[in-house]
Amino acid sequence: MTNSLVRQWILTPIIHYRLFHNFTKQDFLGQFAASIGGLLWLFLTPIVQILTYAFVFSFVFRMESPEDFSETSFVLFMVIGYLPWFAFADTVARSPNLLIEKAPLITKVMFPTQIIPVVGTVVPYLTHGIGFGVLLLYMIFQGHLNWLWLWMPLVFFLQFLFTMGLVAIISALCVFLRDLQQLVGILVFIWFFLTPIVYPISMIQDESIQNLFLLNPMHSFVNIYREVVLLGEMPFTNLYIIIPVSLLTYLFGGWFYMRIKHAFGDVL
């Protein structure tokens, strides 16, 4: 079983490189092909959301960066958490439709369908990774670069694997339970506010409740990005959480997907 999981799930993009490459290229460029402002829309959404949150939380609620981060403006503090979150949330929110919209292909052409959740994660991560990269470049110019940044690609990659595992599970389940589509949208919305992004976790007074947030892997990711970039510190508690959680989610997602993919043809 391990063997086939490695071959059919982990190594898929390599074994079926040509397919992976063409699919990714098609889906990536497809985002811009139909509309005139394709590229613009992609960046406009996070920018508008960031500006809105900045207005509400920074201007209206007069939120300030927590003590440890006091050198940074609240908006920057928020954005460093928000951009990687947006990559995650956008990918997950798209996942229910991944297989359904490719139904004609899946029922009529025999190909390794597990390439679909892989591509479905790679494409938005590529897109939003650009935004996050631009932000990090800006931070470098602001003089925030330190040795711990070497962790950043690894952590972002772990977040990517974590997302891919979820995408595999959700996309496969949605073939059978179409209602999940609506549910996923609501859950992502709730998840956003349960992750300290537009507020610092220090606002939660009760320490035992603060510790409950460790159950949310997205909080750990966001916290790592913030502490590494802004403080030059690595929160190892968070790191020790996300390494196993990401890998297990990724592997379980792949296992689950491979388990039920044979039935897609009957249902789609």
């Binding site: 040509r18 699919f23 460029l29 092909a33 292909l105 052409v109």
Partner: peptide, 19 residues
């Protein structure tokens, strides 16, 4: 079955053939 309507025929050759 695998054609992407927004893309040119030439681009579609590549994806379709790899499928």
């Amino acid at each position: 079955a695998g054609f992407h309507l927004e893309f040119s025929g030439r681009k579609n050759i590549y994806l379709n053939a790899s499928l």
